[in-house]
Structures are given as structure tokens and as C-alpha cells.
Computed example of a mutant assay.
Amino acid sequence: MGAADVVPGVSGGTIAFITGIYTELLDSIKSVNLNAVRTLFRQGPRAFWQAINGTFLLTLGSGILLAIVTLARGIHYLLVNHPVLVWAFFFGLIIAACWHMGREIQRWSAAVLLFLAAGAVTAALISSATPTELPLNPVTLILAGSIAICAMILPGISGSFMLLLMGMYAPVISAVKGLEFSVLGLFAAGALLGLLSFTRLLSWLLHHYYQAMLALLTGFMVGSLVKVWPWKETLTTRIDSRGDLVPLVQVNILPHWSAETLQALVLMLAGAGLVLALEWLAKRFAR
């Protein structure tokens, strides 16, 4: 999830979906509430830890943080120097994820197809939207944190890409580098607000309308393929937080046959193979 979240256009929620931990993740985050605080004071730390599924959250959070710390530099280098190959790997991964999740939909109906189409169209429109520039103030920072964390949870919608669309990616990264705690505090407050409220809604929907939500979330992943398509023509660029010139607005094009195209196809298969391997491991450990 951490590696996916580093790439603007790929969601960590997609990885949670593939590995079968998505519902448990939402339920665990939802359990961090006032009842859990009461449990802490009435029954002690052990009961509180169990109430919030603390071991799961700590393990997952540690893995995300470890991946961001160790892989961010390498993934950034690959995105700048070998973007087609990086996007090809994630394209194959998401295609296989769509197939995997589509098999989980047990009752296909007109309503389910409508939710699938709605998710695909929504994600495609977001992925192809033109970035804007919001003013930097406390309200926009809280809003950006809320939207980014909600997008990060949803499969197929990237939190970092949402920050790019709002023009908040560079200010937030700059605040991280410069340790601007006033900016980071407002952003974190918005993220916490969005996380605790949005996960409750998603969890409730998954428990009460599982098939429809499964179709909608699968649609989000299908629509994200517009953003993840490896072969693009760059129309405008921007300077990122490292001072590198990176693409800002791009359009998808058909590939020309070359050695790189062959490598991209191999990496697509590798991405799809990773999903199948994760599915196999999930089934094996579930026994």
C-alpha cells in the first residue's frame, strides 16, 4: 500500500482490496472512537488494543511507512527516468485486480452494472481532470487533507493525485521537507477528520450493500486505467519538490513497437502475476 501511494495515480486502497484486507481495514479504523477511549479508561490498555484491532493497524501502518521510506526515492527515480515501465507494471496489476474483484460479485443485475459504470466514469473523469490551484489557507489545507485521505482509501483513486489536482501537492511536500508544523498540523487534522468519518460510511455501506459497493469500487479501479495507461504524450510540465521537471497534463496515445514496449508488456504480465500470487497466498493463509 505504501509503494502504491507513492505513485500519483495508484491507490493504496487497490492493494488493500486485492489482498482481501479492505473491509477489516475500514472496520479497524472505524473502531477508533469514543467507545474505544471509554474501554481504555474502564478496562485498561489491553482491552483498548483489542477493541481497535491494534496489532493489525500497527503492522499495516508500519509496512506502509517502511515502504514509503525505503521505496519512495527509487520509485521517484523510475517515474522520472522509466515512466512507461512503471505505469505498465501498475496497469497490469490493476487489470488483474479488476478481474479478481469482478469474480467476487455474485449477483449481476442492472443495478450492479449501473454502480460499476458509475464508478468507472467517476474515476476516469477524476483521472483526466485538469489540475487547478487552490489558495493556501487553513480551510483549504483541512479540505485537502480530508479529500486526499478519502481518495487514498478508495481503490482506483490516488490521494497524491487528488493533491496534484487541487494544486496542494507541492505545498504539502514542501511543508514536510521544511518541517512546517503549522501547515502539517492543519493537513493532518483534515486527514484525521476525513479518515474517521469516511471510513465509517464506507464500512456501513460494505456491510449493508456489499454487492453494489463491490461493483462501485471495482468500477473505480476500471476508471483509473485511464490514468495508469503507460503510453502518454506530455502537454504541460511542472517542477516537483526535488527540482525535477515532471509531466503535469498528459494525453494517452498508442504505443510504437520497440524494445521498451516489449519490456512494458512483460512488466504488465508481472503486475498481473503479482495479483494472482497475492490471491493464492491469501487463500492459503485463510485455510
Rank of each mutant, 00 (worst) to 15 (best):
A3W: 00
D5A: 14
V6S: 07
G9E: 04
T14C: 08
I15W: 06
A16Q: 11
F17M: 10
T19N: 12
T19M: 11
I21M: 10
I21N: 09
I29A: 01
S31N: 13
N33F: 06
N35A: 09
R38M: 14
G44K: 14
P45L: 14
P45K: 04
A47M: 12
N53Q: 15
N53G: 14
G54D: 06
F56C: 13
L58R: 06
L58N: 05
T59D: 13
L60Q: 07
L60E: 11
S62R: 14
G63R: 12
I64Q: 06
L65W: 12
L71D: 04
L71F: 10
Y77M: 13
L79K: 00
L79H: 00
V80Q: 03
L85F: 04
A88V: 04
G92H: 03
I95H: 01
A97N: 02
R107Y: 09
W108L: 14
S109V: 14
A111P: 11
V112H: 12
L113F: 14
F115E: 00
F115H: 02
L116F: 08
T122V: 14
T122R: 05
A123T: 09
P131K: 09
E133A: 15
L143K: 00
A144I: 05
C150W: 00
L154W: 02
P155G: 08
P155R: 05
G156F: 03
S158V: 06
S158P: 03
M162F: 05
L164W: 05
G167Y: 01
G167F: 01
V172T: 12
V176C: 13
V176Y: 09
F187Y: 08
A188T: 09
A188D: 07
A189F: 05
A191Y: 02
A191T: 06
G194I: 05
G194Q: 04
S197N: 12
L202A: 01
L202G: 02
S203M: 04
W204C: 07
L205F: 06
L206T: 01
H207V: 05
Y210P: 06
A212C: 14
L214M: 11
L214T: 04
L217T: 01
T218C: 05
G219P: 01
M221A: 03
S224R: 11
V226D: 04
V226W: 07
V228M: 07
E233R: 11
E233K: 15
E233P: 09
T234M: 09
T234H: 12
L235H: 08
T236L: 12
R238Q: 11
D240K: 02
D240G: 06
R242T: 14
R242L: 13
V246M: 11
L248Q: 08
N252V: 10
N252W: 10
A259N: 11
E260M: 05
Q263P: 03
L265T: 05
V266N: 03
L267R: 02
G271E: 04
G271Y: 03
A272Y: 02
L276Y: 15
L278G: 00
E279Q: 15
F285Q: 15
